Simulated assay, not measured.
Amino acid sequence: MNSYHINLVDADATVALGKRLAELLTAPCVVYLVGDLGAGKTTFSRGLIQGFGYQGNVKSPTYTLVEPYELANVSIYHFDLYRLADPQELEFIGIEEYFNQSSICLVEWPDKGQGWLASADIQINIEHNNEQRSATIDAMSALGETIVATLNAD
């Protein structure tokens, strides 16, 4: 499994990482976001979604489970499963319909949806590192391998 590691000095660096990944992602793609509360998962997602040209406010889908972003060339679905009581609840929102050939899915707290989610292409672990953060991007598929190799080559 290939990995890419980066230190993120502030929220702007986290947004910049998201924007950089937006340059490398193509649909279909599934990104798992792992980290403690406040680690920067939604901040990263904001950068990625803006990197695809979205101009509006990117908010956390903590209460809605999913926020859709329908863009010209791709549909991005941002999931936050933190408040999910039972993974089977995902069946009621039609989870399988989101994971399609023209979508990029960002999933915060993927462990809460185990058994109901498509497999990840990359998993991003964001950790607190004193006042800063660090991110490790792990390749989980052939597409993920290509993304991580490109990041490591930069």
Rank of each mutant, 00 (worst) to 15 (best):
P28R: 07
T14N: 11
T64N: 13
W109V: 10
T150F: 01
I124L: 15
L81E: 05
Y77P: 01
N100S: 12
G144W: 08
F52L: 06
E91C: 05
L81W: 06
R83C: 03
S3V: 03
G56I: 01
A72N: 13
L71P: 02
S103F: 05
A72G: 10
A120E: 14
T146A: 15
L24V: 12
N7F: 10
F44G: 02
V30H: 00
K41Q: 15
T150V: 13
P61D: 08
F92W: 05
N130R: 15
T150D: 07
V58A: 07
D121S: 10
N7L: 06
I6Q: 11
V31Q: 05
G56H: 01
C29L: 13
T136N: 09
L33T: 15
T43N: 15
K19C: 00
A39Y: 08
S75D: 15
L81M: 10
R20P: 04
D86W: 03
T14K: 08
M1C: 07
L21Q: 12
F99I: 06
L17E: 01
S103I: 06
E91H: 09
L106I: 06
G115C: 01
I6D: 06
S119Q: 13
T42S: 10
Y63V: 04
L71C: 04
Q123A: 08
L37C: 03
S3C: 08
K112M: 14
V58T: 02
G144R: 14
Q101E: 14
A149Q: 15
Y32K: 07
S60F: 09
T42V: 04
P61A: 10
L37Y: 01
S134Q: 15
V31G: 07
Y63H: 02
N129G: 04
K19E: 15
E67N: 13
L106G: 04
E67M: 12
V58S: 06
G53Q: 01
N152R: 09
L117K: 07
N2V: 11
T42N: 07
E97I: 06
Q50S: 06
E96Q: 01
F92L: 04
M1I: 13
T42K: 00
A39V: 03
D111G: 11
D10G: 09
D121E: 10
S134G: 13
M140D: 03
D36Q: 11
V34S: 02
G113C: 07
L17F: 04
D86E: 12
F99M: 13
V31P: 10
L21H: 09
